[in-house]
Design a protein around this nucleic acid. Structure first.
Length: 804
RNA sequence: GCGCGGGUGGCGGAAUUGGUAGACGCGAGGGACUUAAAAUCCCUUGACCAAAAGUCGUGCGGGUUCGAUUCCCGCCUCGCGCACCA
């Protein structure tokens, strides 16, 4: 009898799959298609740990299941290879990111091959490949043409020592992360010209599609929140004794009679100009300090609201009252108009502020939600008053209804080397000019020294022969844009590139994109808003450009949990608690046990922990499948066996259960069902093997198992005499007639408590069942001498006898 | 603070539509095989009880129902996301 040896069979089948090009996806195949993808990885130097393998085990199980169900499956792979770690490594070691990326990709590819992932490697893409980012840049130029890419000044963190822009998370205790000692200066805020994508133009379109997405509610809610649409009004307040006006945004125009002061964000242009007399110095100081705070700091200061009076007053257009104008950092410049009318009676934050600075509070909504102290509007329902007051303000010419979003435009400039260069040339005469399509890609030049020069620019700014070019429009000496694009730009369209990855003429052939996409299953466990919103945004634009005939890129989002280390902490190299998948495979467990085990840990959308003991249980199970198949092959087989009917029934029940579980992506219960099946077959084999029924039972098992443990399934499939791959045979179908049990077990309750179970023929009538239930020994004991009020009958399940 | 999920044996988890709570696995205990061990196979394993019977038991407190892990109300608690968005 052959022994189960994953080390031998796994490389063998990986080679066979590769030789036969078993997973190459055919365009326009004459069968249903399934397009499935994971969120492509950043190829880090550390490689993948067993936590990462979870995602690939899910993808591969779905891909193989779909293939076995007669679908043409595209399961591609690519690399999100631009990013900071490679660049920082280059700064430290001088090794160009191009090189480290290449090495890391080779490592990732090897890991995926060794777990037996059924990937179509002919579609491999890599975001840092010029042939790829050429089209990222092309999209940028199209966005630029459409007014969706634009430059504007924006306040950014700046390190005065390194003379460089800092990301929010690089500011520690108000100082640059590299210079946060006691003597080091505070980081500053500087106005810098940056590139943005106008995602706000698509706020409504993106919001509208959310309800129809087959995505987890959690992600849909997160995106809805992020877009943050709110209906309200803009109201203009005149400044007393001045020509200036302040426009505020409010969602509660019904409370305008209760507005007792105005608050401006510190960044608001009028904050300084409205400061008068003795108040000027304090306002100046407050604004300077506030601008320096990160938004995170402002958040932490929530408990204590601070602000300063400008000395100026505004006129409340509703009641003509003179109300003071304050500056406070609890008002954000980036939202609404950066100014609010404060209604302390009906807003907690305004109340806290009013309490602290002893500002007046006027109630304008009573406990019945009716408007009071509001002149002609008194008595109206507050929600009704929202409309009538806005109409009134409109008539007065000081207000209009207005929709506002929390979402801001997407800042995409990065003063970094390792990214796709923004394809723009700055000309004195023509301003920002897009690099013409026939001059793309703008190839990232190889440099010697990757360290930032301290001027806040990417090192690209110092590659003179790269930077200095002619203006495409007039030919005069001009300079290239030296910022690169946010990595999220590269990942916003890769799912569509997979449909036509080698196209050198256009970003993709629309026929191919429309055939494969949208993605049927997109598997990931991260990026609830950022990437998953950006990829939707780009696809909406592609739809407007006529490049695809759909708006939404992802039909079903499979959002999985994370597998942490055995100690319950997140797996990380620095904690030293990672588990290397290749180690597990090489220890002898093999890839099949690894994959199956990870899917057995629990429901895929929940978090779980790695367990070095648990995998042994799965390995035992696979061994039993192996042994059973060997014993069948080696045994003297008869034509029929006494347990044939039972075997057949179990087989069909298991097909139904496992198929159903796979369809709802409930892999842990599918595995449990197969274990039960194998355990049952183990007992039944003592009755002897019958040739056909057992062959059928075992072949079914191999087919059901193949999406999870493909190597073993192929091997045993071959041993049983097949020369095709497992998935090339049609997925087993169950016969309902064979599943029906001959006897049924009925639970018998008395007053809802289980007192007995009775066995009856499956076709017993309601009367028979009730009779048997009432006649059960222990039931008689509990009903004897009591009045039976009623008998509840649930067919094939239970009888509940209600007694007094 | 708001939003979205969770809380079931020693542990991971199952119960898909309100119908026998604890499938399957891990761990533990016992047995078979073995000179012995590993491996393998079989049995037991929610708590109380010697056992049958019984009682209790799905975070806590109520409710609806013949019947609630499942539905409703009010809490506690853990995780994740967003966070002064007017």
């Amino acid at each position: 009898m052959k022994r189960y040896n994953p080390k031998e069979i796994e490389p063998k089948w990986q080679q066979v799959w590769s030789d036969r090009q078993a997973f190459v996806a055919q365009d326009f195949a004459d069968k249903p298609k399934t397009y499935i993808s994971c969120m492509f990885p950043y190829p880090s130097g550390a490689g993948m740990h067993t936590g990462h393998i979870f995602e690939h085990a899910i993808v591969d199980a779905i891909a193989r299941f779909s293939r076995a169900n007669g679908h043409e499956v595209m399961n591609p792979m690519g690399w999100d290879s631009f990013g900071l770690p490679a660049e920082n490594y280059a700064i430290k070691t001088g090794t160009p990111p191009q090189e480290t990326t290449k090495t890391n990709i080779a490592n990732f590819r090897n890991q995926l091959q060794r777990i037996g992932a059924s990937i179509d490697w002919t579609r491999e893409i890599n975001t840092s490949d010029p042939e790829y980012y050429r089209w990222t840049q092309w999209v940028f130029t199209k966005f630029f043409e459409r007014g969706l890419a634009y430059q504007k000044d924006s306040l950014q963190w700046w390190c005065p020592i390194d003379q460089t822009v800092l990301a929010n998370e690089q500011v520690v205790n108000g100082k640059c992360w590299r210079h946060d000692g006691a003597d080091d200066p505070l980081a500053e805020k500087k106005n810098i010209r940056q590139w943005f994508f106008k995602i706000t133009d698509y706020a409504d379109a993106l919001l509208e599609e959310i309800p129809a997405l087959d995505w987890p509610d959690k992600i849909k809610a997160a995106q809805t929140n992020w877009i943050g649409k709110s209906q309200g009004a803009e109201v203009t307040f005149a400044v007393d004794g001045s020509d200036e006006h302040i426009t505020v945004f409010t969602t509660r125009p019904d409370t305008i009679f209760g507005a007792t002061f105005i608050v401006l964000a510190p960044e608001h242009p009028l904050a300084r100009t409205l400061a008068v007399g003795d108040y000027q110095d304090a306002v100046e100081q407050y604004v300077t300090d506030a601008v320096k705070k990160t938004e995170i700091d402002r958040l932490n200061d929530t408990k204590e609201k601070t602000g300063v009076f400008t000395g100026s007053y505004a006129i409340n257009p509703a009641n003509k009252e003179k109300i003071p104008i304050w500056v406070a950092d609890y008002v954000l410049y980036g939202y609404g108009t950066g100014a609010i009318m404060a209604v302390p009676a009906h807003d907690e934050r305004d109340k806290a502020f009013a309490d602290r600075y002893e500002l007046p509070v006027i109630e304008v909504i009573d406990e019945y939600n009716a408007v009071i102290h509001s002149s002609q509007f008194d008595g109206q329902d507050s929600s009704n008053a929202r409309e009538t007051i806005v109409s009134w303000l409109e008539e007065l010419g000081v207000g209009q209804s207005k929709v506002t979003y929390k979402m801001r435009d997407w800042l995409i400039s990065r003063q970094r080397y390792w990214g796709a260069p923004i394809p723009i040339i700055h000309c004195d005469e023509h301003g920002a000019v897009a690099v013409p399509e026939d001059q793309l890609p703008v190839v990232l030049p190889v440099v010697e020294d990757f360290a930032p020069k301290g001027d806040g620019k990417s090192v690209l700014a110092h590659v003179d022969d790269w930077v200095n070019v002619e203006c495409p429009t007039c030919g005069k000496p001009s300079r290239r844009e030296t910022d690169t694009m946010d990595g999220y730009a590269c990942s916003s369209w890769y799912l569509l590139r997979y449909t036509d990855p080698q196209n050198t003429e256009s970003i993709w052939d629309s026929k191919k994109a429309n055939y494969w996409a949208p993605v049927d299953f997109y598997v990931g466990g991260d990026h609830a808003v950022a990437h998953l919103l950006y990829v939707r945004f780009w696809t909406h634009v592609f739809n407007d450009m006529g490049l695809v005939n759909f708006k939404e890129p992802v039909k079903k989002l499979v959002y999985h949990g994370l597998i942490s280390a055995e100690d319950g902490r997140k797996m990380s190299k620095s904690l030293g608690n990672t588990v290397d998948p290749l180690d597990i495979i090489d220890q002898g467990y093999g890839a099949d046990a690894l994959r199956t085990f990870e899917l057995f840990l629990g429901p895929i959308d929940e978090n779980s922990n790695w367990s070095s003991r648990g995998i042994a249980g799965i390995y035992r199970f696979l061994n039993r499948v192996w042994t059973l198949t060997q014993e069948y092959q080696d045994a003297e087989k008869s034509q029929t066996s006494s347990s044939d009917d039972v075997v057949r029934r179990l087989q069909h029940k298991t097909i139904r259960k496992v198929t159903d579980d796979y369809r709802r992506l409930s892999f842990n219960t599918a595995i449990a069902a197969m274990m039960e099946y194998v355990n049952d077959l183990y007992k039944l084999k003592n009755d002897g093997f019958s040739e056909d029924v057992w062959r059928d039972a075992i072949e079914t098992l191999l087919q059901l198992l193949a999406p999870l443990a493909p190597h073993m399934s192929e091997e045993l499939w071959q041993q049983l005499g097949h020369d095709t791959l497992v998935h090339e045979t049609v997925w087993p179908v169950w016969d309902d007639a064979l599943i029906v049990d001959e006897t049924i077990t009925i639970a018998v309750q008395v007053n809802g408590k289980l007192r007995a179970t009775v066995q009856l023929p499956a076709d017993s009538s309601e009367e028979d069942v009730k009779k048997a239930a009432l006649g059960a020994e222990n039931v008689i004991a509990h009903t004897d001498g009591k009045e039976i009020l009623k008998v509840i009958y649930i067919p094939k399940k239970l009888v509940n006898i209600v007694v007094k």
